[in-house]
């Protein structure tokens, strides 16, 4: 881990321990979903694994009482920090009536929660990036000072909507943070076949706002970059593009097999830089996390995930008649 210290960023020991707890919770929920999928209990999983440092670092830098998220399907860590629970995730994974995102209508990972200002999302990638600009523009009209963070993968940053959104936000100087979670793969297609020049952050130059590239395996670096972007936005200085680089540690989804397009050695190598490993070591070295505290934390999270799983598995499905609810045309 770099020389960056949490105290220099104004983060307390409790806050960084809390960050680690959210990262670990996201990882454990995700791992449980894979088990449930392989056991035939849930139809589908799409993973956050490898990107928890980005998601939690970013969400901690926002104001959880007034800022908005237009996330993408891997942002489990982000939505947990904003207020969703393990139970919410499992209700979605099991497609139960109580799923707060969609009442069991959408696949897992399609977040949307009015309680926490997380806008509902879809599967066609990058559409949410324009919605973020719309929410920022609405804030301008209403003279509010909220900031909108929207995220997507590096593959999605090639979509026309992404360009249209960056340009629009640049022209109107809107408080949007464009977060690109570069996990090196868009399903099977690697970065060098996705992004000309290999660097998403440099595109910001063309839009007239700052673009920064950070180590996504270091949540403190992500926190620092997003914090600065939030402050700029709040001062009325407009958008920021942040490219946070990490690695997707698992296949694209439960229906993918990544052995067909990347070597096991590459994946094993990436695991050494897993943000969870790196941040754990940092906290251990700083004396914030101890073996004893870690055991307690692991136990707590295991219990939380167990209880969430049990609850969701037993929870009722939506009634078939609900197919016809919320239909107006």
């Amino acid at each position: 881990m770099s020389e960056l210290k949490h105290t220099a960023l104004g983060l307390s020991d409790e806050q960084v321990l809390d960050m680690y707890r959210y990262m670990l919770l996201a990882r454990k929920i995700d791992e449980r979903m894979w088990l449930l999928n392989r056991a035939g209990k849930i139809p589908f999983v799409i993973s956050c694994q490898g990107q928890e440092g980005i998601q939690v670092g970013a969400a901690f830098a926002l104001d959880r009482e007034k800022d908005w998220l237009c996330p993408y399907y891997r942002d489990l860590g982000m939505v947990l920090v904003f207020g969703q629970s393990a139970k919410d995730q499992m209700l979605s994974a099991f497609a139960k009536k109580e799923d707060p995102n969609s009442g069991g209508r959408q696949m897992p990972g399609h977040y949307g929660d009015r309680r926490f200002r997380i806008l509902t999302g879809s599967s066609p990638v990058t559409t949410q990036v324009l919605h973020a600009v719309g929410i920022a523009y609405a804030g301008k009209l209403e003279k509010k000072d909220h900031v909108v963070l929207t995220s997507c993968g590096e593959g999605s940053s090639n979509q026309g909507d992404w360009h249209e959104a960056c340009n629009f936000a640049g022209v109107h100087n809107l408080p949007v943070i464009f977060m690109v979670e570069n996990n090196k793969y868009a399903i099977s297609v690697p970065l060098n076949k996705q992004v000309a020049g290999g660097d998403v952050s440099k595109r910001a130059q063309g839009y007239g706002f700052p673009g920064v590239k950070v180590d996504g395996n270091n949540p403190l670096e992500v926190y620092k970059a997003v914090k600065e972007a939030v402050e700029r936005a709040r001062r009325g200085e407009g958008p920021t593009l942040i490219e946070a680089v990490s690695y997707r540690l698992v296949p694209h989804s439960s229906d993918d097999d990544d052995r067909s397009y990347r070597a096991r050695e590459e994946v094993e190598e990436a695991k050494k830089n897993d943000s969870l490993v790196i941040f754990r070591n940092y906290l251990m070295e700083a004396g914030i996390l101890t073996e004893e505290k870690e055991q307690e934390l692991n136990k707590q999270i295991a219990r939380e995930v167990d209880e969430a799983t049990d609850y969701a598995e037993k929870a009722p499905y939506p009634d078939p008649e609900e197919t016809y609810k919320h239909v107006y045309a």
């Binding site: 908005w68 324009l130 919605h131 973020a132 600009v133 719309g134 609405a138 340009n167 629009f168 022209v171």
Partner: peptide, 24 residues
């Protein structure tokens, strides 16, 4: 409130959708 947008139809729709979902 009478916004001249860039020449981008997907953004006209997408930005409007975001603003509408927000409450405008």
């Amino acid at each position: 409130r009478v916004l001249d947008t860039p020449l981008t139809e997907s953004a006209i729709a997408g930005v409007a959708i975001g603003a509408a979902a927000y409450g405008m």
